[in-house]
Design a protein around this nucleic acid. Structure first.
Lengths: 116, 116
DNA sequence: CAGTATCCTAGCGGATACTG
DNA sequence: CAGTATCCGCTAGGATACTG
């Protein structure tokens, strides 16, 4: 048993959630955690269902929070690369933990026999 | 450096997020992690800004996912207790990690000098 | 005490078309 | 290639009033 216990009223979980929540944000972050750097269209190809508008929006928001950095190369045709920042990488353990929990949750639902 | 790396397309982060996201869900969970069991109105007093409607809704959703259990005592006036399940307790490390990350994020924003 | 029942709205996310 | 610009529907969440 750990002894932590956050004071619920001072809790910053919502702060963290406010930043990683977004229909495509976790997916984008995961891709950038794997590839480190990706061009706009490369990212778009990896997330087939996303629209250009949404990809742009979610990337801008991630950029604004410092999780992702955007590099524009002044060439034609345009070339823009998105990279996960060292700071963004700090989310990895959390994303991983959530992934594991999510997996367990799905398994749990499929087998009602499981107790707890 | 850890070697995990989730396949983004098979990722269950969204599953987890789908369950803990909700304006008041983290707060409710945190309170129940501290107190273990609380009556409806006790919870309401601890979360002054929540409306009855919202408290009921969020609790029902947490209950449906098995994170919280609801016990009705057939007395008048009514007495209903909400308890965090052992399963719900498994979220604690994740909530704690998010809290820490959120705190760091706030500090980071207040001091632009910090690198990464 | 522990809820429902109604009504309402902000904003997230989608569809589609256009552009430097 | 990497975006904007519009338009639009849905639903999470809030305000308020009522009840067994």
């Amino acid at each position: 048993m750990r002894r932590l216990m956050i004071k619920p009223e001072l809790c910053k979980v919502d702060t963290a959630l406010g930043i990683i929540v977004g229909k495509w944000k976790p997916t984008i972050l995961l891709h950038l955690l794997v590839e480190d750097t990706l061009r706009f269209n490369a990212l778009k190809r990896k997330i087939p269902d996303i629209t250009q508008r949404m990809l742009t929006k979610q990337l801008r928001e991630l950029e604004e929070e410092g999780l992702v950095s955007r590099t524009v190369y002044p060439v034609v045709p345009p070339k823009v690369e998105y990279t996960i920042t060292p700071y963004g990488k700090k989310l990895e353990p959390i994303l991983h933990a959530m992934h594991e929990w999510g997996k367990a949750h799905i398994e749990r639902k499929s087998q009602p026999s499981t107790e707890e």
